[in-house]
Design a protein around this nucleic acid. Sequence first.
RNA 1: GGAGAGAUGGCUGAGCGGUUGAAAGCACCGGUCUUGAAAACCGGCAAAGGGGCAACUCUUUCCUGGGUUCGAAUCCCAGUCUCUCCGCCA
Length: 419
Amino acid sequence: MHNLKEIRKNFDTFKKALKKRLIDFDLEKLEKLDKQNRECILKKETLEKEKKDISKSKDKTLYTKSKEISVSIEKISKQQKIIKGDLEKILFNLPNIPHSDVPIGKDENDNVEIKRIGQIPNFDFKPKSHYELGEKLGMLDFDLATKTSGSRFVFVKNKLALLERAISNFMLDTHVTKNGYEEISPPLLASENTMFGTGQLPKFENDQFEVKVDKENDRKFLIPTAEVILTNMVKEKILDEDDLPLRFVASTPCFRKEAGSYGKDTKGMIRQHQFYKVEMVSIVEQSKCLDELERMTNCATGILDLLELPYRKVILCSGDMGFSAEKTYDIEVWLPSEKKFREISSCSSCSTFQSFRMRSRYRNKKKEILYTGTLNGSGLAVGRTLIAILENYQKKDGSITIPKVLRPYMNNSEKISLN
RNA sequence: GGAGAGAUGGCUGAGCGGUUGAAAGCACCGGUCUUGAAAACCGGCAAAGGGGCAACUCUUUCCUGGGUUCGAAUCCCAGUCUCUCCGCCA
């Protein structure tokens, strides 16, 4: 969320910057409401002062006047509340401003490839898709999941379940021991306010699974990513500069409705309502956001290097970036069956956008209170890593070679096969 | 689920319906002293929002939301959370 105090200093610059998203926002209305709101506050405060002075004076002759003032205050308060509500409706739904590094563009077609790493495998047979391989092994069962839970779910069984667990543990271990992240096992339900903090609410309510809670005014949501809960660990906190940077990592299930993606990736486990993801979150000084983004992206690609999977790094264009991000790199892994790179990680710097929503701040050496910068990135999506391993490491007979770094996590076995 | 107790500044902890944004202590920062440090002493030390070029100033905030009152941290109502005991349970 944007700091009104900052943007009103130069509304035109703000308007121009937001235009990069290539969507129209009613900023004139925002400006107007802001003005009206401040006028109301001014009037209200004048009256409040008057009233306070009377009550301090203890002058009984003024008591009736004080009552009259109360009525006026109430009236103007009501008016101000309505204006503030309208103002927030706009403000809460404005996305972050793209950083100047970000290419201007409309959608994923305008994203810019930065580099490719790794050798795209050459098969002397037609490579199978992960779901063909998984189903043939009897270790991926989509039909069963449909029966128990509906579309976009899967049962992962036997050695593939172990592989999934191995991937998750390997990633966690790497981020903890090599990359300096603190491992967290967080709650998987988040309150409404927490969802607001990272920007999932109010705009993207339709994408969230809400859990039925009997209490009124107490809404809970299944986390769509651990980013939500890890980032909010610093919600409403004033940290010390020496506490920064904070780096957290968690492996959690993630839940997404995938509303509006009907007919997209319906086959296989590319796009599921539930999937595991290892998520990294950093809380830093704002000035260090971009350096931290590079570092975090390297932590993500480091996993792919160790797994020896081919990938490319892409910078997202202004129109394709998420709501809270100022700059985002996607890491895309090669999928032989699709002959395409597919997203396996997304690393974003959100500058102070989320911090402002969460009121997460720190005190610098000069004792000034500043908003923290927040970053999040997958390191990596576990389900999609499983897919990438199946497809890239497949053999003609349908067996799967286990990447070397994962073997210690899999009783040192070298391959997964029918027997 | 039943029965009690509580929620005040970074922390601990006072608080009578009327300069209480809030005593005191700790922590922290600045100063004196010291070769340096510690101790001691002196001073400072909440956040958000509004107005002002600025010095500064005003408003709000003692869990949240209502109510009583000229005036509420203090009284009343509702809710949230925490703790203790009992029951149930992974």
